[in-house]
Design a protein around this nucleic acid. Structure first.
Lengths: 214, 214
DNA sequence: GGCGTTGTTGTGCAAGTGTATAAATAGCCC
DNA sequence: GGGCTATTTATACACTTGCACAACAACGCC
């Protein structure tokens, strides 16, 4: 009768399991913070038991580290994708980039919570700090490249310092609006943040109003 | 001989003890994150034993709440102080505001860590979210007021929507540069961020180069 | 179908968690 | 100085945490 029945389970592929555990970790952190992300919570979310985590990761710390890396990877990947537009003027691509960064899915409270939770540890954790710096510089270099193209199309020849300053400022505009949107999205009408961002970026670059080309 | 000696202690005033405990909490959070801020760690830092915390706060959660409120209070207080300059043109006051927000002590990794750690919980904790929104709106309204003065001095009559957009954009510029400075301060030369910020803000407002008045 | 490998479970444990509570003592009033 | 009171310490407790390990069973292979 009351057989000491053990829980049924399936063997998933290694890659799949690791991914599930990482996703469950990010979900847990987003919902309850780092303190709420216990091995048991994570395992429950992933549909396995806690012991399994140690079969795939040396320890909980390593799982968190990989989860953060995965998060950063997804964020920068999405952000850069908008720059890949073909058949568009540099200025249009810059505008598309700003727009993409200031709408869903990049404007997202969950992602913001994750970012803030992890980045808050950057001061004490050098590996986190380095990961951030690399992601940030990569992002800024992308911005700088588009800015160079935009200005070139306007027949302007900025020097390196000027270019760098523009990239830093534009990066700040996007980051700042991103935060505002994530934290208080309902205070802005749809597309409003993107419109503000584009205007601010164009002002920073000294671009006049766009002339309609046929 | 081996008297069961008890630890010596002094009775501090209530306000002083509460403040010490709050400071110790912020130190603990900044150094080890929310997970590292245990009652024992906090008490050790404050030079008391863990039990005392419950004498001043109903529970650990309340202590954290008060610590966050104290942090926000100090941050906004410092930020707004720069706007109080007398004998200065609106434009100079705006520049001073930007400069103040993009240098020490507002650019500070510890404060940033605290901000990020707490704000990361805003998505799940409505009281945190409300506290942030109030602080943010207060800040933005200050910005909006100075912007109105600056534009008025230029004999321009922006409507409400325009003013709001300027304030949002300027707020974003300051926030974004603040983050960059806190996270990677050594990548910028002293005063560089402030210079970038002022130029970006003036571009946003369409201000021409400042004419030297006598 | 049986068998071995190994992914997966369940249990146990020592360390650490927040909180409750009793015992002690510092500082004030007389 | 002697007591009163409330601040402070110390200890206890129930619970959670990350991790170790042995038992188990799902799946591939023959």
């Amino acid at each position: 009768m009351n057989a000491p029945s053990r829980r049924k389970f399936r063997r998933e592929g290694e890659e799949r399991r690791r991914q599930d555990l990482i996703d469950a970790t990010l979900d847990s952190v987003a919902e309850h913070g780092l303190q709420g992300a216990t091995v048991r919570t994570i395992a429950l979310r992933a549909g396995v038991t806690a012991g399994l985590i140690r079969h795939y990761f040396p320890g909980k710390e390593d799982l968190l580290q990989e989860a953060y890396a995965a998060l950063m990877g997804r964020m920068t990947e999405q952000a850069k994708a908008a720059l890949a537009l073909e058949d568009a003027s540099p200025r249009q691509r810059l505008a598309a980039f700003v727009t993409a960064n200031l709408n869903a899915p990049i404007i997202d409270q969950r992602v913001f919570s994750l970012w803030a939770t992890f980045i808050g540890r950057a001061g004490a954790d050098p590996s986190l700090a380095r990961a951030h710096r690399e992601g940030y510089l990569g992002f800024r270099n992308e911005v700088e490249a588009v800015v160079a193209e935009v200005l070139a199309a306007e027949r302007r020849k900025p020097d390196a310092a000027e270019l760098r300053h523009h990239a830093i400022a534009i990066n700040a505009i996007i980051d700042g609006l991103w935060i505002e949107g994530c934290l208080a999205g309902e205070m802005f009408s749809p597309g409003e943040l993107a419109a503000i961002g584009i205007k601010a970026v164009e002002a920073e670059l000294g671009l006049g109003p766009l002339v309609q080309e046929k």
